[in-house]
Structures are given as structure tokens and as C-alpha cells.
Amino acid sequence: MESFNPYLDTVIALRKELHQHPEVSGKEVATAKRIVSFLKQFPPDEMITAIGGTGIVAVYNGEKSGKTVLFRCELDALPIDEVNDFEYRSVHKGVSHKCGHDGHMAILCGLAIKFHLKRPDTGTVVLLFQPAEEDGSGAQKILSDSKFKNVKPDYVFALHNLPGYSKNLIVVKNNTFSCAVSSIIIKLKGITAHAGEPEKGINPALAIAAILSAFNNYIQPDITQKKYRIITPVYIQMGEKAYGVSAGAGEIHFTVRSDSSAAMKETTRYVEETAAKIADSYQLEIAMKWIQTFEANENEISAVDLVRKAAHANDFELLEKATPFSWGEDFGLFTQKYKGAMFGIGIGKEMPALHNPDYDFEDEILQTGISIFHHISKQITDANEFNYRT
């Protein structure tokens, strides 16, 4: 592993502080302020704030021109009540860092320290603190912001911590790393009637049942096989608690996921066409809306090779994952636009799963993440290791 960072205790303290004060997607105002205040202690050559909302970009320029590499982390937490009782537990009821974004931010802050102390020899390193990953809107907000237009990275990288995998294990995969995911709201409108005379109205119940059945018959839930796709019902509402009234409207929400962006287009087309056909057959009006869309993370092979080399150089065990992760991650929008890769770092086989109320990030992997990112940058920008002991 690269030489130990004597500032690691500072990075761990920051991680716990961020954990204690979480904010949900799009509301990361105090979180962003804390990151800016930390970065000011280790000033970059340029800092852009309020990008894509609450996002932050820190730029470290080399002495000579060269390639630009971007490393990205996430600012947001989740609307989940924390059950942990340690000293740095969330102070905000119903909000907590249950995906480890506090740890991801701390890793980039540790990387900022390294580049403050020793700039890359050539090229540019960009650290992106992105808002609103959890609702799928943050990456698009960053990429659409005019403040981002001059960044122009040659490579983009991100990591995710992985409960259920050995601590410090580096998990890589060519091509699709995480699935394309999107959610749909389907609203059906019929006509209410007396519950004793339902034939005088149009009740959406049978249409809802038919949609559920059709989607369930279409799924292919084995991710090891081709055309993996899952359509998961997450919410259903119909009518009112009025027992003399036959319902005249209903609503169903689904989360849809596929193992590539191309397969996702096929699946979403099926969902829309099937729901519309069933609604029409029952004489129902239908309205559909897609929300929280995540493009698949399509890793570029040469970028994954840089991660592999960084893992080997630091003597970390490497796992070549055979199948994509089934969860979505909006970094996929970056890997659609730029050459890059997302990879994983194990935090322990017995650790609570992501989004579980008792989850917590493992501080032991902070140095691992910093080392991997820094070694990737060394391969692209000739960044040199700073000797802290001189």
C-alpha cells in the first residue's frame, strides 16, 4: 500500500462528523459547506461551488499540461431512521448515511490532502462532490451545469463500498458494473359506481391485476443469464375506504432494472406498451411517468485495467465479478459520456447491507480508497507520492 497518510485521523473524524449530520438528496447545504471548509484547509488551485445545486469541484493542476482525471463521490444521505447507538449516530430523525456516502466523501477529502501537499507532475486531477445520487438526478444536474463545461475529463472514476465482501477486497468488472434502473408511476382512471352496482362504473382492479401478472411473466430474474430484467411492484393504491363505492381510479408504482442500457430501453418499451394495451382493454384512461432513472455503469476496459494495476501495486486482493450489481448508480451517466469505471471495495462479510437501518461505513477502508484513487491518478497524470517524513 502507498505510504500511510498521517492525516488519516483527521479524515476519520470528518467521516464521523458527516455521518452525524446527514442530508437527503438536493438538500445537502450544510454538508457542502463542511466539505468546502475542509478543502480550504488544503486549498486546490480552483474550487467551484454550487454546481448542479450543492455540488463542489476541486481542481489540482500539474506543473505541465496533460490528461485530466476526475474522481467522484456523493454528498447525500437517505430517508432512513438510524438504529445504531454509537456516539456519532445521526442527529436528524429519519435521515442517515446508510449507503456510505459519508465514507466516500472522506476518501476524496483524503485525496485532496495528498494533492495539496504534492500536485501531479502533469495534467489535472478533479475531485467532484456530487449531490443527489440517491434519487438519480445529481449526475445530470452536474453535467447540465455550465460551470462544468470546462472540466473536460479524459477519465472518470468512482468507487462504492461493498458490505458482504472481504475487507479491502477490490471488486472490478469489465462492461456493465451496475444495472440500469428506473421507476414508473402508472395511473388508471375509470368511473366510480355504487358498490352494489359495479357494472355501472369502470373499476381498475382487474386491469391492475392484469398488469401485475403480465409484468411478472415478463421478468428474467437470473442475473447470470442474458436479458436479465426485474419489474418490482413497490406501491399500489386503489379507490377509497368507502365501502359503498366501487373504485374509479388506481395507481401502481414499479421499479424496473436491466443489465444494460440497451436492454433497459427494450424493457421500458414493453412496460409502456403492455400497460397501455391493458388499460385500453378495460376502457381506462392511463397516464405514465418515469422517475429516478439511473443509466447502467458501462465500465471501459482500459479504465478497469488502471484499477487492476492500482490494486496490484498496493497488494490488495482483486475479485473479477462475473455479473453486474443489481442496484443502480447515477455515475452511469458519466461512464456513458466519458471513458471511466466504477469499482467496489469490500467492507466486511458480516457488515449490515447497504440501506439497512444498522449499516455503518468501515473506516479501515478509507486509506484503501485513497491509495487506489491516488495510484490511478499516478498512471494518468504521473502524480508522485509525497514523502510525509521529509
Score class of each variant (00 low, 15 high):
10 T>E: 14
10 T>K: 15
12 I>M: 14
28 E>R: 11
28 E>A: 03
35 I>M: 14
41 Q>D: 02
44 P>R: 11
45 D>S: 02
49 T>R: 14
51 I>F: 03
54 T>Q: 14
54 T>V: 11
57 V>C: 06
57 V>E: 00
57 V>N: 00
58 A>F: 05
62 G>V: 02
63 E>F: 02
66 G>A: 01
75 L>S: 07
80 I>K: 10
80 I>C: 04
96 S>P: 01
96 S>Y: 04
100 G>D: 04
102 D>A: 03
110 G>F: 05
110 G>T: 02
111 L>G: 04
115 F>D: 09
117 L>N: 07
120 P>F: 04
123 G>R: 03
124 T>I: 04
127 L>N: 05
130 Q>R: 14
132 A>C: 09
134 E>M: 08
137 S>C: 04
141 K>Y: 03
144 S>H: 14
149 K>E: 11
153 P>L: 02
154 D>N: 07
160 H>Q: 12
168 N>M: 03
169 L>D: 04
177 F>Y: 15
178 S>E: 05
182 S>L: 01
182 S>K: 15
183 S>M: 08
183 S>Y: 05
187 K>F: 06
191 I>Q: 08
191 I>N: 02
194 H>G: 09
196 G>Y: 13
196 G>W: 08
197 E>T: 01
197 E>V: 00
198 P>E: 04
199 E>G: 06
202 I>Y: 07
202 I>L: 11
203 N>W: 08
204 P>V: 02
204 P>N: 04
207 A>L: 05
211 I>P: 01
215 F>I: 00
225 Q>L: 15
229 R>L: 02
231 I>L: 15
231 I>F: 08
232 T>D: 13
235 Y>S: 13
238 M>E: 07
240 E>R: 10
242 A>R: 11
243 Y>S: 12
245 V>M: 14
246 S>M: 10
255 T>A: 01
258 S>N: 12
258 S>E: 10
260 S>K: 10
261 S>I: 05
261 S>M: 09
262 A>N: 10
268 T>Q: 15
268 T>I: 04
272 E>I: 12
278 I>P: 02
278 I>L: 12
280 D>A: 15
281 S>M: 09
283 Q>W: 07
284 L>T: 07
285 E>H: 13
290 W>G: 07
295 E>M: 15
296 A>K: 12
300 E>A: 13
306 L>W: 00
306 L>Y: 01
312 H>W: 10
318 L>W: 01
318 L>S: 02
323 T>Q: 10
324 P>Y: 13
330 D>W: 04
333 L>C: 10
341 A>T: 11
345 I>P: 03
349 K>L: 13
350 E>I: 11
352 P>D: 06
355 H>R: 05
361 F>S: 12
363 D>M: 00
366 L>V: 09
371 S>V: 06
375 H>Q: 07
379 Q>M: 06
385 E>G: 06
